[in-house]
């Protein structure tokens, strides 16, 4: 009887090892096509999706309360394999219009799992090396997490960028329009969404997010 139990436990352990290795082998071969990343600043995790299926989760450090990671839908716009600068291995820069943010390794591994950075996403060096191979310039990175209230102090127009534009994009999406990625840039998709918005609400077709737009979207403009 005892022997049977030992055999069963052995088989279970063996199968776990086999499956784990299979996953590792699979991930080593993960090509960058249709890969997307989601950083959850609440959980301090970076999740890797391939064809919308979760394939791996890494622990990360995110921005401190005073320097939160930028919440939004970004893209990797720069990759640097030789980046170091005393911070850690690899650099994958994001297209955040109001600052320099990215995903990188760290020489402070104890900070992983906490809110410790200036807004960047820190990873263990061994993890960032893996991730670096799986992504390419253009890979989408969504960051969810806490955010400071955004103040709108201007009318918003095409080609502008900023957190206020990102808030406008979020509100347009909430209301059934498609502004593209919520990346804080008033580009083509956002312009198209605004054109549809003005048409649906019977307003002047000038693509300016003005007071009428703010009232409809429940956005409060604070002069400043």
């Amino acid at each position: 009887m005892k022997d049977d139990i030992v055999v069963v436990i052995f088989l279970i352990l063996l199968s776990v090892v086999v499956v784990e290795n299979a996953v590792v082998i699979n991930l080593k071969n993960l090509d960058s096509e249709n890969v997307s990343l989601v950083v959850n600043a609440y959980q301090k995790q970076l999740k890797v999706f391939k064809n919308n299926k979760l394939v791996h989760t890494f622990p990360v450090a995110v921005g401190k309360t005073s320097t939160k990671s930028p919440v939004g839908e970004w893209a990797i716009v720069h990759k640097d394999a030789h980046w170091g600068g005393g911070f850690g291995e690899r650099w994958m820069g994001l297209n955040v219009p109001w600052g320099k943010y990215g995903i990188h390794g760290t020489n402070k591994p104890h900070s992983i799992g906490t809110a410790a950075s200036h807004g960047c996403i820190r990873m263990f060096n061994r993890d960032v090396k893996k991730l670096y191979q799986w992504v390419e310039v253009g890979t989408r990175v969504k960051i969810i997490g806490p955010r400071d209230p955004i103040k709108i102090s201007r009318f918003l127009k095409p080609k502008q960028s900023g957190q206020d534009v990102l808030l406008l994009q979020e509100k347009l999406r909430e209301n059934g329009f498609n502004p593209g990625y919520t990346d804080g840039m008033y580009g083509g998709s956002t312009q198209e969404a605004m054109r549809e918005f003005k048409y649906i609400y019977g307003l002047k077709d000038d693509l300016v997010a003005n007071e009428n737009v703010f009232y409809i979207l429940n956005l409060t403009k604070k002069d400043g």
Partner: peptide, 23 residues
């Protein structure tokens, strides 16, 4: 037209038109 909603909600506009079903 740019003052449509601000004037309405500030109690300045007595009548506003036209109004689409979504507005």
């Amino acid at each position: 037209g740019q003052k449509l909603l601000s004037h309405f909600w500030q109690g300045k506009a007595g009548v506003i038109a036209p109004v689409t079903p979504w507005l």
